[in-house]
Amino acid sequence: MSAGKNEIKNLVIEWNELLAQEKYMEALDLILYDNTQQIDGEEWIWTPERLEAAVFTYGQPWYSKEDMKQLYGLDYPVDSKVTSLLTDSDKENRLENIEISIDFFDDVISADKAEIWGISKLDYKNIIGEIFFDGIPIDGERSDLTALFWIIRVSENDITLVFRDLHMM
């Protein structure tokens, strides 16, 4: 494998920085291998607009800003943004306390587990682990947003990350 846990963590931080710069397409392109998923039996494709919506709705990307204001009132803050970890005045503390959990699987994922997890388009036999990026910083504060990624082997020596979801834990 050509990347260890530090390299994977740095890639997730780079992804966060793209979100902080509102470069949602670049964030998807950085790690995306196949963005089609099955969610509740329906095909779901992550787009830059849905990724942005997942930020301001705290993980409910199917709602628009107008939907959120109708549901929660005109005062609902639809301008929330991801905060940079690298330009933060308390950068060292933030980076030290960032919670990126990287777990490598001991066994190959079974077809049954792949179906339960909604994996339909990816080669689930090459999924070798998962990442939970907990506490994505929003508007300068640690939030309840968590990003989930798959770690996928693309060749004998190379891996990539696949963005799975952004939701409140």
Score class of each variant (00 low, 15 high):
residue 146 T to A: 06
residue 135 G to N: 09
residue 13 I to G: 03
residue 166 L to P: 00
residue 39 I to G: 01
residue 28 L to C: 01
residue 68 M to L: 07
residue 29 D to R: 11
residue 71 L to S: 11
residue 34 D to H: 07
residue 169 M to V: 10
residue 46 W to A: 00
residue 99 E to Q: 14
residue 15 W to Q: 14
residue 136 I to C: 02
residue 84 S to K: 00
residue 129 G to I: 02
residue 20 A to K: 00
residue 8 I to F: 09
residue 30 L to F: 10
residue 52 E to K: 12
residue 156 E to Q: 07
residue 53 A to S: 06
residue 136 I to K: 00
residue 157 N to K: 15
residue 13 I to L: 15
residue 15 W to T: 06
residue 143 S to I: 05
residue 56 F to L: 06
residue 103 D to W: 08
residue 126 N to M: 06
residue 51 L to I: 05
residue 25 M to H: 10
residue 100 I to E: 06
residue 112 D to S: 11
residue 86 L to N: 12
residue 70 Q to Y: 04
residue 141 E to M: 12
residue 17 E to R: 04
residue 114 A to D: 06
residue 10 N to C: 10
residue 101 S to L: 11
residue 80 S to H: 06
residue 95 L to W: 08
residue 18 L to S: 04
residue 156 E to R: 14
residue 35 N to I: 06
residue 68 M to I: 05
residue 126 N to K: 12
residue 117 W to P: 09
residue 76 Y to R: 09
residue 121 K to N: 14
residue 36 T to D: 14
residue 74 L to Y: 08
residue 84 S to T: 08
residue 24 Y to P: 01
residue 129 G to T: 03
residue 15 W to G: 04
residue 122 L to S: 07
residue 138 I to L: 02
residue 159 I to V: 11
residue 89 S to R: 13
residue 72 Y to E: 10
residue 52 E to I: 02
residue 5 K to A: 13
residue 120 S to H: 12
residue 163 F to M: 03
residue 95 L to Q: 05
residue 73 G to S: 07
residue 151 I to G: 00
residue 65 K to N: 06
residue 138 I to D: 00
residue 113 K to A: 13
residue 139 D to E: 10
residue 67 D to I: 03
residue 81 K to H: 09
residue 79 D to R: 01
residue 95 L to F: 09
residue 14 E to N: 11
residue 81 K to W: 03
residue 16 N to V: 08
residue 81 K to D: 05
residue 111 A to Q: 14
residue 112 D to Y: 10
residue 80 S to W: 01
residue 47 T to F: 03
residue 43 E to K: 10
residue 107 D to E: 15
residue 90 D to Q: 14
residue 52 E to D: 15
residue 144 D to F: 11
residue 98 I to Q: 00
residue 139 D to H: 06
residue 19 L to W: 01
residue 5 K to V: 15
residue 46 W to E: 01
residue 85 L to C: 03
residue 119 I to S: 03
residue 67 D to S: 13
residue 14 E to I: 02
residue 144 D to R: 10
residue 75 D to P: 04
residue 42 E to Q: 13
residue 116 I to P: 04
residue 137 P to T: 02
residue 110 S to M: 09
residue 71 L to H: 07
residue 153 R to A: 06
residue 3 A to E: 15
residue 165 D to H: 04
residue 69 K to F: 05
residue 84 S to E: 06
residue 137 P to S: 07
residue 149 F to W: 02
